[in-house]
Design a protein around this nucleic acid. Structure first.
Lengths: 245, 245
DNA sequence: CCTCCAGTTATTGTGTCCAATACAGAACGC
DNA sequence: GCGTTCTGTATTGGACACAATAACTGGAGG
């Protein structure tokens, strides 16, 4: 428990758990269960849930409980559109303010992500479903963009961009295929292109590259989902698909 | 009280009151006061406040109460940058989906806003500080863009754009000056340009016009604030300026 | 006159209790 | 046999009570 109020701590913990996929979309969260899990009363739990509801991560169904939201295909696409806009903005700003240290950090994040991408693709081809690896991969991706946010020094932009990004989660990275490999690789290379544009102090260039990168990520995700849907018919949880990126 | 849970009703009411400026930025909200005002216990009040906190409208200062946030100049600028991005996106999408009825509604909103702008400028020149008029003006402006959001049929985009827009409030529209008149007029004309681009089914055109429009609104606001600051030295509430337009 | 300190008070944070609502399943009528 | 209503139970929504923390008063000492 880091800061003052328990409601905030719980909200943070739940947010993490939901975004990381530990709590799958569609789940219903029982207040009493959470309260004993966190060893507090129901009151702070409910306040935390209210916060998550305001963030759009869960929905209150009055007198029925709260349910972790699952995104429809359309919402997913929208989220990437929003992220594309906000990322371009952040990247453009960052390109004008980035220090050499920031650039070094960016390069670090880039190679780390590159490495994880390779390993993830290999694992997929080998049929291994390494959830931890997928989480790391996603985390490394976020880290790259986080460096950019930090350099942009624009708290509001950062907050909203991350809100759009938070709409996603890890589930199914286990589809394989030549086209997917290509998309993964493209996605990876784009990081380098963005970094170089920033290093060259080209805000406009970095902007369009960032935009294209995010949109491209969206296409990658959709391709993965298509593959997975084709491979595994899988019981479809009614109302909103079960993935959450 | 419209819907099921009281916390939501209260949150809505408070949100409206804050955004409309009825509750000025910097105020501290006493839970007990609110609870008797809404004739409920403190519990739903607190939940409502948690929601507002998640939306960024208020901040919890542990054991000290909640305070209505006031925006710094920098945050204000950021909010307009974000809005510019999201509005362009929404407008671009809307341009591809807008029906003739939507276009008619858009034109309605346009002339209404035009009318109110004229009246507002006149009132300013006459030295009248008609708060109600200012509210109407702002509301009409929002209505115009709301038509676009509705046509875009992109709930997430709409939600986030409105979140950025909600960061604003009415306070000081009473500064006058030739340059301000010009900016007001420009702002007004831009609505027409946007509508015409949409009517011409030019998503790209509408996009850049929308972007420029929002940025231009931001400049208008900053100009107003400058004028007001110059005219009235005014006691500066410490930490974050008192405006929240 | 100012500063520091302690006791008091006001206000928030949390736990507990009760009422209201929704779902499950049995009893009942057709 | 099937649908309907009733009742029981689980779970939420809200009220209230208590504990914890921070502001506020007043006074003592320098």
């Amino acid at each position: 428990m880091s800061d003052g109020t328990k409601a905030d701590d719980i909200a943070l913990a739940l947010e993490e758990a939901i975004v990381s996929g530990e709590i799958p979309p569609g789940s219903v969260l029982r207040q009493e269960h959470l309260s004993e899990q966190f060893a507090v009363s129901r009151t702070p739990v409910r306040e935390a849930l209210r916060r998550l509801a305001a963030l759009g991560l869960v929905t209150f169904e009055p007198n029925r409980g709260v349910r972790v939201r699952s995104l429809s295909r359309e919402e997913l696409r929208e989220a990437f559109l929003v992220r594309a806009e906000l990322e371009s903005l952040a990247t453009e700003i960052a390109a004008t303010r980035m220090t050499d240290e920031d650039l070094a950090a960016l390069e670090n994040a880039e190679v780390r992500f590159s490495d994880l991408t390779r390993r993830l693709v290999e694992a997929s081809h080998a049929g291994r479903q390494d959830l931890e690896l997928a989480r790391e991969w996603l985390h490394a991706n976020h880290s790259f963009h986080d460096v950019i946010y930090a350099a942009a020094q624009s708290p509001l932009v950062e907050r909203m961009a991350k809100a759009a990004r938070r709409t996603f989660l890890v589930k199914p990275f286990w589809a394989t295929g030549a086209d997917l490999d290509e998309l993964f690789e493209k996605n990876d290379h784009q990081h380098r292109a963005i970094r170089e544009a920033i290093a060259a102090r080209s805000p406009e260039g970095a902007r369009v590259l960032a935009r294209e990168h995010v949109l491209s990520s969206g296409r990658l995700l959709e391709a993965i989902l298509d593959k997975v849907a084709a491979q595994a018919p899988e019981r479809a949880p009614a109302g909103g698909v079960g993935y959450r990126l």
